[in-house]
Simulated assay, not measured.
Amino acid sequence: MILVTGGAGYVGSHACVELLNAGQQVVVFDNFCNSNSASLDRVQKICGKSLIAVEGDIRDQAAIESVLIKYGCTAVLHFAGLKSVQDSVTNPLEYYDNNVIGSHRLLRAMQNTGVNRIIFSSSATVYGNPQFLPYTEDHPLNAINPYGRTKLVIEDMLRDQYASDSKWSIGILRYFNPVGAHESGLIGEDPVGVPNNLVPFVAQVAIGRRERLNIWGNDYDTPDGTGVRDYIHVMDLADGHVSALRLLDAPKCFAVNLGTGSGSSVLDVVRAFEKVSGRRVPYDFKPRRPGDIDSYYAATAHAFELMGWKATRTLETMCADHWRWQSANPNGYSG
């Protein structure tokens, strides 16, 4: 049995699909603060298999221990956490409380119950401003916002735990920019309030929920002046977790990038989305936001060498799958 913290969320729900399809049994532990339990009903519909859902907070160590023992969990996929860079700047203590303290309680619960295999959902934000591109896994770690620093603290906790007890097996997966949705259109990204990420905002403009897209800066040192990011399909990302899980049979601690290895600009994304949706996405250029950088993208060779994994889906596929989800669910799960 695999415990999936935050399994009702965007990436977590797609990972549950891949876990179930790979023959794993799954128990989800989620407080639904920024997710919807309906996603889990749809995961089961997609797979034709059942999972167990437990409502709870990762800061509740006793509850986690109870779940680990009750269901005989042998490994954890840890997605639970707050994830907005902008919100973390405004509410840093909330991010340290939920992300860092919650992860500490989770690790304590695992230690107390003898569960020592974990895949952690980290982020490319741990690298900070690029000293070179593409980011390789040995790029200096220098997170520049509270969200990224919470991820880095958790990574350090995991590395320190492994150094103290080499029976642990730990995979740290550094995401780049997850986009897209399951090809069925049944599950996808359903942000609470105004989307913080580009593709959900573009989709809401295309569907008519929002009037225009603001593009923050058009004077970057990039081919079209807009920021360049490494966008990865959420199902490629989910597959990366299953590949990483297979490596945990023997003690180890590793970190890998999960990205495509190439960047797309904001305008590339807008044009791709307009093409697949047949809808116009009007936009306005606005001044740069503090802290935004020209471009970043992943080096992906290590993930392939270590796990035999690489991303295969194109930007157009990412946009088409997100549009299918958005069209079928114009108001997300609440609709």
Rank of each mutant, 00 (worst) to 15 (best):
P200T: 02
G180S: 11
P146R: 15
D160R: 15
P130M: 06
G114T: 10
S166V: 12
H182C: 06
G114I: 09
R209T: 06
W168F: 08
R210N: 08
V115M: 09
A163K: 13
V179F: 08
L198F: 10
V199D: 14
S121L: 00
L152N: 09
I118S: 00
G188A: 15
G193H: 04
F176L: 07
I207D: 02
A203S: 13
A124H: 08
N129W: 14
F120I: 05
M110D: 03
L133A: 01
D165F: 04
Y175F: 15
K151M: 03
I170A: 00
I119E: 02
R149H: 12
F120G: 03
V126G: 00
S184Q: 10
P191E: 01
E211A: 15
N112Y: 06
F120R: 03
D190K: 05
N145Y: 14
Q161K: 13
A124K: 05
R117A: 05
R108W: 10
G180V: 13
W168S: 06
F120H: 04
A143T: 09
V115Q: 00
N177F: 12
N112H: 14
H139N: 13
F176N: 05
G148T: 09
S123L: 05
V192A: 11
Q111K: 10
Q204R: 13
A203W: 06
N177K: 07
R210Y: 08
R212V: 08
A124L: 07
I187N: 05
P191T: 03
V126A: 03
S169T: 00
A181S: 12
K151C: 04
N116H: 11
L141N: 05
G148E: 05
S184Y: 10
L158C: 01
N197Q: 11
P195F: 07
I144N: 14
D190R: 02
G114P: 07
Y127H: 12
Q161F: 03
L158E: 04
V205C: 03
Y147N: 13
D160A: 10
L152A: 03
L198E: 07
V115P: 04
G188E: 06
G128V: 10
S184A: 08
I154F: 02
L186Y: 03
N142L: 10
L141R: 14
